[in-house]
Design a protein around this nucleic acid. Structure first.
Lengths: 198, 198
DNA sequence: CGTATAGTAGAGAGATGTCTCTATTATTAG
DNA sequence: CTAATAATAGAGACATCTCTCTACTATACG
């Protein structure tokens, strides 16, 4: 009962995402989001009690969307293959979801959301739990044990190096052909178990 | 003639830098900078005509400070050594200049400076020229020729991978001992001339 | 068909930030 | 010592953004 929604929650999140990706984090003001949808700002506040809640919801949606494939990749039983799949997922997902990839790699949560809303406190607290568990399991399986060093190296190989490559994907019309192979090379070198020649 | 300056240009830049590093880009408001120095905002505007000019000047100062050692490292005639030195410089400089490293790795220019001031337009245009030239020269020397691929791989190895590691330096009291070796391993793997096993 | 309800619409209050303007103060040169 | 000057000091004009409040509108259900 009541009239049907003209602007859905998802529409609002998409508009915010577009603004962040196109014009930067500061551009996603409530007025700008409303204008992008052709709505007045009041309509936005009918759905989300605050700007921070919009961006926090968008953040969670985006992180979860990215994590899904990443977690699946890490499930592969052969650890080198799992690593390759994880790296490939990051690059391909980023190419297929540029705006979202841009948001994730370009901004920290704290720079997008001034004050994390209480109602999403629980969500935030557990958001990375699965990935953390998964990375620890990978490290234990791959290196034999998860120490500060092996964990740090794993994170560097599986997360930070691929993230660093996303800039190349966002920057150009289509990802350079050498990129995927290069990133995999770097990651696997970091994950090498025998002591490399110094 | 006239009274001596109580707050110098450099004091103002340092205050802005501290705010950016500690509380994020949005925290470096003119009022906050003034408060940090114990001055009213009017005194700041006596030195810099706009907030953007403060942050743009800081940006240039920081980039130049970083580039100096990086360019020196790349001068080494043996290219593998040059690469190692460049990587090491990025990590060690970041450890020694955390606030500046944080600013450079955490924010893009566009996110710090809304509208780049005209008076610094020339500076900006040439800011990266030397590094670009230097990276091209390195690529030509190392790979034999600078193509889109060899240039892209060089940038990834010498700039983006080390940048990705800076987070580990900023995040903890002292950089993990394994970091430097790990980053060098990744970079050199990317720079390997023979086709790696796929 | 009419009423309850979910939603849209938009004006405007209040907070925060940039920048301007005028007054005051310290320092140097003659 | 005095005048010129470079700098500090701080009030407030103006812009922008978040969020509130009230009025209006479309739709579903009986």
């Amino acid at each position: 009962m009541g009239r049907t929604a003209k602007y859905t929650d998802q529409d609002i999140l998409d508009a915010a995402l577009g603004l962040v990706a196109e014009d930067g984090a500061h551009a996603a003001t409530v007025v700008a989001i409303a204008k992008r949808l052709g709505a007045p700002s009041g309509s936005i506040y009918h759905r989300f009690v605050s700007r921070d809640l919009i961006l926090a919801t968008l953040w969670i949606r985006t992180v979860k969307r990215f994590q899904q494939g990443f977690l699946e990749a890490l499930l592969h039983e052969e650890s080198d293959t799992a690593a390759r799949l994880a790296v490939t997922h990051t690059l391909q997902w980023s190419a297929a979801h540029r705006s979202e990839a841009k948001m994730l790699t370009m901004y920290r949560r704290e720079d997008l959301i001034a004050l994390w809303p209480d109602e999403l406190g629980g969500e935030l607290a557990t958001l990375n739990d699965e990935v953390k568990r998964s990375v620890i399991a990978f490290t234990a399986a791959h290196f034999g044990q998860a120490t500060a060093e092996t964990l740090g190296r794993t994170r560097f190989a599986l997360i930070e190096i691929p993230y660093a490559a996303v800039g190349h994907i966002i920057g150009s019309a289509q990802p350079p052909s050498w990129l995927e192979h290069t990133v995999a090379t770097a990651s696997l070198a970091v994950l090498a178990r025998q002591e490399p020649v110094r």
